[in-house]
Simulated assay, not measured.
Amino acid sequence: MGTARKFGQILHSELDVHAAWVPVTNTFALGDYGVISGGVFVKTGNIAEYGITFATASGPSARLRFRSDGVRVTRFVAGAEVPNIPQVDLEASIRIEFSASDSFYVDAPVLTVDSIEDVARVGAALREVEGWRRRHKVVFSTYTGQGCTVISSRKANSTFELSATADVLRLLELGKATGGITLSGESAAGLEVIGATGVVGLRLFKLRQLTGGTDVLHTGEPDDEIEYEAPGDPEDDL
């Protein structure tokens, strides 16, 4: 199973949202539209191209913390193992051990949600757009992680270490790191995001084929398997 699809399964199980791939380092925004390919959303445009506007709202923040089975995390300060990283100016590290390939360590200390507030009105406007393809999915919620750390293993029995002073690593675990952290390991990680801020998950809607009403997509539905079609392919929607 590919890294992207595996990450999508994590977001499905933890939040019931679609993965924003690549996580954090992307440019997804509310109103983006596209299709699902390989289990992840592929953007092809934004509904602003059709002159459609929308109201937005923000929800309460949360925390996303995920460890695949077999992932072991230990913390060290001045060479001694500690239960938590203190705020001191001493060398420290966070060791992450993966017992299996395609495993994940995901920590988004602060996760915020922004959404299109008037989805039904937006759907009604899209129904009037000439040439709108009803297989298109539209982003109506974005889940943004503040100070995210996402690491995945390419192979089993891999070990990685995040190293910095203890006060910097403490800020990392609070989602407030500003740099000065190094990642080392026995082999290259499949995915490396250290203390960055960006979109990790998406919620999508589409127009129903027969009625034209808005249909919120849940992860794991058969619609997730629709493959990407390049612009210019023949239109076969109703």
Rank of each mutant, 00 (worst) to 15 (best):
D69F: 13
D69Q: 13
G70A: 08
G70H: 06
V71K: 05
V71M: 07
R72P: 02
R72L: 14
T74C: 01
T74K: 11
R75S: 13
F76Y: 14
A78E: 12
A78K: 14
A78L: 09
A80C: 04
V82T: 13
V82D: 00
P83Q: 09
P83D: 13
P83I: 02
N84D: 14
N84E: 13
N84G: 13
I85G: 00
I85F: 08
P86H: 09
P86K: 05
Q87C: 11
V88L: 05
L90C: 10
L90T: 08
E91D: 15
E91W: 14
E91F: 15
A92P: 01
R95W: 08
S99W: 01
S99A: 14
A100E: 14
A100P: 05
A100L: 08
A100Y: 09
S101M: 07
S101H: 06
Y105W: 12
V106C: 02
D107N: 12
D107V: 12
A108D: 01
P109M: 07
P109D: 05
V110W: 05
V110K: 05
L111K: 00
T112N: 14
V113C: 08
V113Y: 10
S115E: 11
S115C: 10
I116T: 01
I116G: 02
I116E: 01
I116N: 00
E117M: 11
D118L: 07
D118W: 01
D118V: 06
V122L: 10
V122E: 01
G123K: 02
G123C: 09
A124S: 13
A124K: 11
L126W: 07
L126Q: 06
L126G: 04
R127G: 06
R127C: 08
E128F: 09
E128Y: 03
E128R: 15
V129H: 01
V129D: 03
G131M: 07
G131Y: 05
R133M: 11
R133W: 04
R133Q: 14
R134H: 11
R134A: 10
R134S: 11
H136W: 12
K137S: 04
K137N: 04
V138A: 00
V138P: 06
V138W: 03
F140P: 01
F140V: 06
F140Y: 12
S141I: 03
S141C: 12
T142H: 06
Y143P: 00
T144S: 08
T144M: 03
G145Q: 06
G145P: 01
Q146A: 13
Q146T: 15
G147L: 09
G147N: 00
C148R: 01
T149W: 04
T149C: 04
V150S: 04
I151P: 04
S152V: 08
K155P: 01
A156C: 10
N157V: 14
N157D: 14
T159K: 07
T159Q: 10
F160V: 15
F160Q: 05
E161I: 03
L162I: 14
